[in-house]
């Protein structure tokens, strides 16, 4: 590893230590191939999202409805050249444009939640690990253990229920994003704390501290890179929790009881949303919402055809984003471990 003279002679003197011990952010190492694949996939999602904003403009928040495809339309069109992803019969819309419109919304939702979640886990866990048995450490551990004892999805529903009782209008997407971000951090924070605690006791951190480096600098330069691993491992799992929640609203409202639903298949009721949902309407383009509708209207028969495209394409969009994030996060984790 080569270090520039300016960095080697920095006032804290920790660059020289990092060169010898190989700690901190390993800037001079090339990224593993996984990182580039993950970045490429996420860039593709971003391009799709930006193009949706440009193309659809003010009509981005509602999928177009074609009445002839709304139930009880007997056989919704399957994927073809005119409708590449087929038609979602529940709301009577083409899935291709619906998923395209949903991309910027989902990217915004997922990255906002993960930013809050990851930042809280990293900062609180690292500070707690750097001050073992201090009041910050005890408070963070106590709160994370207590909040983490309830499944975050269930706790979020409880909070949304309470909010919906007080003021229905407050339950919207920004509140949902904020609450979910605040509930997802405990599992990762425990791991971060454990690693930060070990990192804070290492020789290079002691040496950096002895040479006059500030605690904030030690935190950012040494503790963060050594303890970010659990956050990177947790992020793809949190993507699963986010879409489980978003698809569950529609699923619960429309087909929570499959045994009963089989008997009423012929009725083809119009899709609805439960009162606690953060989505403005069932026609809002969002992958989880589309998946929930697709599951109810595509998988609702035992004797008739299985409209596989209705749930497959929204699911592929979700799984693709999760795998892109997993490749990026696992690659970054490997990149950081190179130093060790």
């Amino acid at each position: 590893m080569t270090v520039s003279p300016a960095r080697a002679s920095s006032p804290s003197g920790d660059s020289d230590l990092r060169r010898r011990h190989g700690r901190g952010w390993p800037r001079s190492h090339p990224f593993p191939i996984e990182v580039w694949i993950g970045v490429g996939l996420l860039a593709a999602y971003a391009v799709v999202g930006v193009s949706a904003i440009v193309v659809f403009g003010s009509s981005l928040s509602r999928v177009p409805t074609t009445q002839m495809w709304v139930p009880p339309y007997p056989a919704p069109p399957s994927p073809s050249w005119s409708h590449p992803f087929g038609v979602l019969s529940g709301v009577g819309t083409g899935l291709f444009t619906a998923i395209w419109r949903a991309t910027p919304w989902d990217l915004a939702i997922v990255f906002s939640i993960l930013s809050i979640d990851g930042a809280l886990a990293l900062v609180l866990g690292s500070i707690a690990g750097m001050t073992p048995r201090g009041w910050v450490d005890r408070t963070v551990t106590f709160v994370s253990d207590s909040i983490g004892s309830v499944p975050p999805v269930m706790l979020l529903v409880v909070l949304l229920l309470g909010l919906s009782v007080v003021a229905r209008t407050t339950v919207n997407l920004p509140i949902f994003v904020l609450l979910f971000g605040l509930l997802l951090w405990p599992p990762a924070a425990r791991g971060v704390r454990s690693r930060a605690r070990r990192a804070a006791q290492t020789e290079y951190v002691e040496a950096s501290r002895a040479s006059g480096a500030r605690e904030s600098r030690i935190l950012v330069r040494h503790v963060f890179p050594a303890s970010i691993g659990p956050v990177l491992a947790q992020i793809p799992v949190d993507v699963a929790a986010i879409f489980l929640m978003l698809s569950a609203f529609t699923w619960i409202a429309n087909c929570v009881n499959p045994a009963d639903f089989f008997a009423t298949t012929a009725a083809y009721p119009l899709p609805t949303l439960p009162p606690i949902t953060p989505l403005p309407s069932v026609y809002f383009p969002e992958w989880g919402n589309l998946l929930g509708i697709g599951m109810c209207w595509g998988l609702n028969t035992t004797a008739g055809p299985d409209f596989w495209w209705m749930y497959t394409f929204p699911l592929l969009a979700i799984v693709g984003l999760g795998i892109a994030l997993a490749l990026l996060c696992d690659g970054l984790d490997r990149w950081l471990r190179v130093a060790e």
Binding site: L244, P258, M295, D306, Y311
Partner: peptide, 22 residues
């Protein structure tokens, strides 16, 4: 193994349940 477990985790459990039921 990493990608397989992640893909399985990303599948909503009630979707898997429904696929099994049907």
């Amino acid at each position: 193994a990493r990608m397989g477990t992640l893909t399985a985790a990303l599948l909503p459990v009630f979707l898997v349940a429904w696929l099994v039921i049907i």
